[in-house]
Design a protein around this nucleic acid. Structure first.
Lengths: 239, 239
DNA sequence: ACGTTGATTTCGTAA
DNA sequence: TTACGAAGTCAACGT
């Protein structure tokens, strides 16, 4: 789908189109699906994708077509307006429109996109740089230490030279403790590493996780993300 | 959020609200995320959920809040309109609105919902009725045959009376073959069943899965869903 | 209410 | 390009 041309042939940003319409929808692709007639919100995005939303069940549309795809507006056998949205692989979305309540378009321009911050990965980088903030005298052996069931976030050594496995989460939940438990069990089979103890590190540790960790002999460390970031970049400390 | 009251105190269906606005968005919950100022589509659904869409990257919103949540419209420290959407668990979505391009609401009413067809469960039902379409003379012993690691989709007997385990997927991938392999290993320990061979059945089988299956001595069967459905309902054959 | 599993998953990253 | 794993996964189903 090429962007629309203005009367003077200038290229304009393809707008997002919002349609409120009474419609029925049929999808044929990986599965077959049908939506009976009802009033819905139809969104045609700049990339050609189409979303069919009801007023609940967020955030997934009732039905949709992912880009790249083409939209052809035509008339069905009942003489009603029909949108046929087709993907390269033959997936087809047919929208029969009985009545249009509203139809408007807007240029949104290019979106700078989402900036994710404070994710596990960044926490891991910061803690790898400052393992001492987890326990006195802790030093890093390796980040993403490989095991057969996946990499351990941090493998460290404590002040007495004993191995310490660290699992890092933004929010410490039971599943994170379970994960660390599995790693510890595996690591402790290695006579070169054993005994390995565990530290569960998170910005926030839920009570249930804390209890489970205690039961497993795993220590918990709440991480001050902002403080760590301050240690990471000395210029921040000036303010 | 209670539905709005009309001047005569009658309760009205809460409408979906569409706003085109230049805004910035901050999310704090499982992660922290930021959207710089740009013009976007904001959708407030009847169930209170909020979606922030750009004009591409369907169908997932750039940012969102799932129900149940509450939206409070206020003013931020810069004197600009700010929506604060908060969930029970403390997750917060802050939308600072610099300029509203459009703001409209519509009553969509209740949606009858999506009717899906062709999912794994339905495939399993159809193949259970017509095991012969997988291999000549195959007959069903039991659907969802229980094992210690979960139920096998179909347990059959071939024309010579030998056991056959069938794993059904819509799209045959490596993990499906692995799953069937685990079942076969377990089933073959049972002297009453052994030897058990495997059939990997799917509407579409990926090359890698086919190779792995061959390597494990598992046969593959691509399933013609429409043909099966035709067999399922005799009236269809009249056309 | 909770856990498990499938999904038209989507989305990122590393190989 | 493909494969693998995580996701603010979501959503349906069984216990």
């Amino acid at each position: 789908m090429a962007p629309p041309l203005e009367p003077d042939n200038s290229v304009r940003v393809w707008p997002v189109r919002l349609v409120i319409a009474r419609c029925q929808v049929d999808y044929a692709g990986r599965l077959t699906a049908h939506l009976p007639f009802a009033t819905r919100l139809l969104i045609v995005k700049a990339d050609g994708s189409v979303l069919v939303h009801s007023d609940d069940r967020s955030y997934k549309p009732l039905n949709w077509m992912s880009p790249p795809c083409t939209l052809v507006e035509g008339v069905d056998r009942h003489g009603e307006v029909e949108w046929v949205v087709e993907a390269r692989n033959g997936d087809t979305l047919r929208i029969s429109i009985q009545e249009i309540v509203s139809d408007s378009s807007y240029d949104l321009g290019i979106d700078p996109g989402l900036q994710k911050d404070g994710v596990e990965k960044h926490l891991q980088e910061l803690l790898a740089q400052h393992p001492g903030s987890l326990a006195e005298g802790l030093s890093l052996v390796r980040r993403e230490f490989p095991t057969a069931i996946g990499p351990v976030d941090l493998l460290c050594r404590d002040i007495e030279g004993a191995s310490v496995a660290v699992e890092i989460k933004r929010r410490g939940d039971i599943e994170g403790v379970e994960q660390l438990t599995r790693y510890l069990e595996l690591l402790n089979r290695d006579p070169l590493l054993s005994p390995v103890r565990g530290i569960f590190a998170a910005q926030e540790i839920r009570p249930q996780a804390r209890v489970l960790a205690g039961d497993r002999g795993i220590s918990c460390a709440t991480v001050d993300y902002d403080a760590l970031r301050g240690m990471d970049d000395p210029t921040v400390r000036l303010f």
